[in-house]
Simulated assay, not measured.
Amino acid sequence: MRRHGMRKLPILPTMFVAAAAAVMVVLGVWQMQRLHQKEAMLARYQAAQASATEVSWPGRGAGAEMALYHRSRVDCRTVAGMTTVSGRNVAGEAGLAHVADCRLADGSAVPVSLGWSRNPASPAWSGGAVTGWIAPGPKLVADPAQAGLEGNARPDPRDMPNNHLAYAVQWFFFAGVALVIYGLALRGRWREKR
């Protein structure tokens, strides 16, 4: 007569699956923390955009992130070059944003999105004082537009992706699936040994 005792779990596979599921749960928790950080950052950006306070141009240092979506101004002493990139105007129409590679008095470079048009030819613009919004990059989006161009769409923090919740759900789902699959594999193995 065969004795049915407690079923034994295979040690190494069980440890491996448990460790993998634990890592996935930790990654899901980390994504939830990132979600809260991102929400706080976006709220700070929206408050900055609603503020009338003008800040100094931050450059590319540590202060650049804190200055995003504030108004600022630069004095473009010389224009080192001009490029066009896809962009939208204030009405949301697709076209081209004309970006000047400005040099300030200290020699630092600032990309300034002068304005929007459908014409790919760069406008004639030799520099000067420009006010506008600090957009990611950082770059200055001129407001008002310069060089006879139409206004660019105002940079909007809501355009930044915030998909950390979806990533968290994926990691938790992967952990659950790994455990369910392992449980089904064990059940099949135990049935075969009967």
Rank of each mutant, 00 (worst) to 15 (best):
D101I: 08
G188Y: 12
A40I: 02
G5H: 10
V90P: 03
G127N: 05
A121R: 10
Y182E: 14
G95F: 10
L27S: 11
L165V: 15
L186N: 05
R118P: 00
G81L: 08
A80F: 07
P161T: 14
L35E: 04
M1K: 08
K139T: 12
V130C: 01
P10Y: 08
M6C: 04
L68P: 00
P138S: 02
F172Q: 06
G61T: 00
G176W: 11
V55N: 01
A18F: 13
R34T: 04
G148N: 07
G63D: 14
L68Q: 06
R77L: 12
V177K: 09
W190L: 12
G127D: 06
V29L: 14
A91Q: 11
N162Y: 10
L42I: 15
Y167C: 05
P111Y: 02
Q46C: 05
V85L: 12
S86H: 11
G132Q: 04
N163G: 14
K8T: 01
P120L: 04
Y69S: 01
E192I: 08
A145T: 03
L68M: 09
A80D: 15
T84F: 06
A100D: 05
S113M: 07
L149P: 00
V74C: 01
R189W: 12
V29R: 13
Q33K: 10
M24D: 03
D156M: 03
L165E: 12
A47Y: 13
T131I: 03
A22D: 09
A147Y: 02
N152S: 06
H4D: 08
R73M: 06
H70R: 13
A48C: 02
P138F: 10
L68Y: 08
L35T: 06
T84D: 02
Q31E: 09
M15E: 03
N163V: 15
A124Y: 11
G151C: 04
P123K: 12
G63T: 05
Q49F: 15
D106H: 07
A145W: 01
A91K: 15
L149Y: 00
R103P: 02
L35H: 04
M160H: 13
R2F: 08
C102K: 00
G128M: 09
L68K: 05
A52I: 13
V17A: 07
T53L: 14
G81D: 02
I11E: 02
R88E: 10
I11Y: 04
M160L: 15
V180C: 14
L165N: 10
H98D: 05
P10L: 02
W133Q: 03
P136D: 10
A91G: 10
R118Q: 15
M24C: 14
Q49A: 13
G92H: 10
G107A: 01
G92A: 13
H164P: 08
M82G: 01
H98Y: 09
L165C: 05
A135D: 09
G188R: 13
L35N: 05
